[in-house]
């Protein structure tokens, strides 16, 4: 079965005044129809850049220098992204962090949903309005008719995120990219929002790409994980496999830094070092090697792409075999 979203060896650079930032290098990912993939990694590892590139909303300074992005068999990068322009918001949709500022502050939330409907569907006038109210009801917003004419500042953060989900799902997309959807929300709301995304995904058979730095969240939510570090995907595999037997030293350290259950703070390990400066001309093939305990001369040679087990891939010369506790 071919994947719904297939990213193959994607490379992306930012041309800035202080040099070229190699933000993504040879990034490959597959997401099957209806599947859920978690893209994890620390801030600055390129998770959001990757998702923006999928939607074609990357910064003007960004250039895709290689690779392909295919969605349901269509090349999204062909013809300057013309295919993407017709699919964006209809087949692929995205929700963002900090929902209160991610909605137009001076437009009624119902109108914002309607804008998307008017753009992508044949609905007009009262029918569009009725559908917008339905969308609000779909994301379990109480009293949707009244909320239709609310402005974002009149709603709580959780409500705003529901509205954003309603905007994203208005045209029943096949893929939802959720970029840190719970950042900026309080903990109880976070759980409700994640449950909503999961339930709606199941109801509508929609694939989800969850971008997060919260491994615990990704573990609860995703069947598969992809770990990003400094613009590389270092490891991909089924969620539980990655948690039990992480093969890449970076994944292993991330797992050790993630609290599980009653873990005490002193038992959590922080990862030494920082992300390397991606403007450097002498970036090593393995961008983690400078922070790595297992570093060896082999790390200066091109990275392998090892298959640890079916569906579990790692880009490392020293994959770890031991299972973490």
């Amino acid at each position: 079965m071919s994947a719904l979203l297939e990213i193959d060896k994607l490379s992306l650079e930012f041309r800035t005044r202080s040099g070229i930032v190699r933000a993504l290098e040879n990034v490959s990912l597959q997401l099957p129809e209806g599947g859920s993939l978690g893209l994890v990694g620390e801030s600055g590892s390129g998770k959001s850049v990757l998702s923006f590139a999928v939607l074609g909303i990357q910064d003007a300074a960004a250039t895709i220098t290689g690779g392909t992005i295919r969605f349901a068999g269509t090349d999204l990068l062909a013809d300057g992204g013309s295919a993407m322009k017709t699919m964006r918001g209809r087949e692929l949709a995205m929700i963002f962090q900090n929902p209160r500022v991610a909605l137009n502050p001076i437009r009624q939330v119902g109108r914002q949903i309607e804008d998307v409907l008017l753009r992508h569907t044949a609905l007009r006038g009262a029918a569009a309005r009725a559908r917008a109210i339905e969308c609000l009801a779909d994301v379990r917003i109480p009293d949707p008719e009244r909320r239709y004419s609310a402005y974002p500042f009149e709603l709580s953060g959780g409500m705003c995120q529901r509205v954003m989900i309603a905007i994203a799902l208005a045209c029943k997309p096949r893929l939802l990219i959720a970029d840190e959807p719970t950042t900026g929300l309080d903990v109880t709301t976070q759980a409700a929002i994640m449950r909503l995304i999961r339930d709606l995904g199941r109801e509508k058979g929609m694939a989800t790409l969850l971008i997060t730095h919260d491994l615990g969240l990704a573990r609860d939510f995703c069947d598969k994980l992809a770990v990003m570090h400094a613009g590389h995907i270092v490891e991909v595999g089924p969620t539980e496999t990655l948690f039990r037997t992480p093969a890449h030293p970076y994944t292993a350290q991330l797992v050790r830094a993630t609290p599980v259950g009653q873990e005490r703070l002193e038992n959590l390990a922080s990862i030494p070092g920082n992300l390397p400066d991606l403007r450097r001309g002498d970036l090593p093939p393995c961008r983690f090697s400078e922070r790595c305990e297992l570093r060896s001369p082999a790390c200066a040679t091109p990275l392998p792409n090892l298959v640890v087990s079916p569906g579990h891939l790692v880009g490392c010369h020293h994959p770890q075999a031991r299972s973490s506790p």
Partner: peptide
Amino acid sequence: ADFIRTARASGL
């Protein structure tokens, strides 16, 4: 602003 990115992502 963030909401412009949302609008672009919605394909407006």
